[in-house]
Each structure stands twice: as structure tokens, then as C-alpha cells.
């Protein structure tokens, strides 16, 4: 029960902090912002790694590997493309 409260608190707190932070982001950075938060959402890669923390069947191994590859595609691609965009902004907006 205590755990549940903590988890709910983390969710609600993060939602509120996220809202406050995002509301401050200027319109011109909305595309890089979405691209970065998109990369952050690939945090499920942690969940995919944890699938392998216990014994796995063959089907679970296949599923796990697929989830890992997809999440890695998302996280690396997301941060890389955001970085490319922001470099263009910084070059001429500094």
C-alpha cells in the first residue's frame, strides 16, 4: 500500500513538474522539445532490460530483444535528431 502511494505520488508529481517546465518552453523550440521528450519516453528500455532479470522462455527472449531494439532505436534516434536540430538553432541564434 505504501508502495502504491509512492508510485501514485511519483506519477502525479512528475505530471505537475512536467507541465510547469513544458509551459515555459518557447514556441520555436516545440519541435526539438517533442523530439527530446519522444526520446525520453523510450525509457521503457529499462523495462525491457528488466525482462531479462528472471528466467525467460524462447518467446519471451524474442519479445524482449524486439522491445530492446525498438526502444534503443527510439532513444538514440530521438536524442540524435534533437541534437542536430538544436545545433542549427545555436549556430545562428547565439
Amino acid at each position: 500500500m505504501r508502495d502504491l502511494l509512492l508510485l501514485t505520488g511519483v506519477f502525479a508529481g512528475s505530471l505537475a513538474i512536467g507541465y510547469l517546465l513544458i509551459a515555459r518552453v518557447p514556441v520555436r523550440l516545440h519541435t526539438p522539445l517533442m523530439s527530446m521528450t519522444n526520446a525520453i519516453s523510450a525509457v521503457t528500455i529499462l523495462g525491457a532490460v528488466l525482462l531479462f532479470a528472471v528466467d525467460t522462455t524462447l518467446a519471451q527472449k524474442v519479445c524482449g530483444a524486439l522491445a530492446l531494439a525498438l526502444a534503443a532505436f527510439n532513444v538514440v534516434g530521438g536524442f540524435a535528431i534533437t541534437d542536430r536540430m538544436l545545433r542549427m538553432f545555436r549556430r545562428h541564434h547565439g
Binding site: F11, L33, T37, I40
Partner: peptide, 9 residues
């Protein structure tokens, strides 16, 4: 936490 950040955004 990360999921909630992204959902908020």
C-alpha cells in the same frame, strides 16, 4: 516519472 513528463509535454 519519465512517462509522466512526456505525457505532460
Amino acid at each position: 516519472a519519465c512517462g509522466a513528463f512526456v505525457a505532460a509535454s
